[in-house]
Every structure is written in C-alpha cells, then in structure tokens.
C-alpha cells in the first residue's frame, strides 16, 4: 500500500467508527420526542452493557488450558471483596490489578 492508500484506509476506518457513534443521535434527534421503546431500552440497557464489558475483557481467557482462568477469577474476587469492604473505586481497581500482576508474573 502507498501512503495515500494508507490515509484512505485510515479515513474509511474513522468514518465507519463515527457512523457507529453518531447514528443513534442522528436517527433520534434531541428536538424530537424519542420513541417510548427506545427510551425504555436506554434505561434498561446500561446495566446489561456493564456486564457485557466485563465478559468482553475476559474473552481471551481460556478455562480449559493455560492457567484455567484462575488468576482472573482470584483477582476479580479480590476486586469485589475490596470494593464491598472499602467502597473506594481506585483502591479496588489498583488492588485487583496488583494482585493480578503478581499472580501472572510470580505464581502462574
């Protein structure tokens, strides 16, 4: 590929990405009432998406080979316990990450 072709490819990728981001706002503009059904989805989708994102982060973990997903499991349990205990977002995230790093570097 030439540099021009690179730039066109990157442009097309940027355009496609923006389409996925802008489309809902174009189809349901702010100055017109949004269909009830879309408002309903807007309200009940977020909790499901939060769950979806957790699974999304874990999609490369294999439960049947390597370390069987144990470092991930232990670290997620630590994050949950830390968070229920102290309810400090940064502490839970940092704590869980350090535990995970120690596990994959030293244990597994």
């Amino acid at each position: 590929m030439t540099v021009t072709e690179h730039i066109i490819t990157i442009g097309v990728i940027a355009l496609g990405t923006m389409l996925t981001r802008f489309l809902p706002f174009i189809v349901f503009p702010a100055d017109k009432p949004t269909p009830k059904f879309i408002t309903y989805l807007g309200k009940y989708l977020p909790p499901a998406i939060f769950g979806f994102l957790v699974i999304y982060c874990l999609k490369d973990v294999s439960l049947i080979s390597g370390s069987y997903g144990l470092p991930e499991l232990i670290s997620i349990i630590s994050v949950v316990l830390l968070h229920i205990w102290k309810r400090q977002m940064l502490l839970s995230i940092a704590g869980g990450t350090v535990i995970y790093m120690l596990l994959v570097q030293l244990v597994f």
Binding site: P46, P47, F50, G51, L53, V54, Y56, C57, L58, P71, E72, S75, I76, V79, V80, H83, I84, M89, S92, I93, A94, G96, T97, Y100, M101, L103, V104, Q105
Partner: peptide, 18 residues
Amino acid sequence: EGIEFVMTAMFVVIFLEN
C-alpha cells in the same frame, strides 16, 4: 505483564457499583 487487567478491574467495579 498483567497491567492490562486494570481495565477488567475497572469494569468489574463499575458493574458492582451499579
């Protein structure tokens, strides 16, 4: 190695907080 887990931990906390 393993620092990428910070993203997983963040999404877990956001999920849990909700």
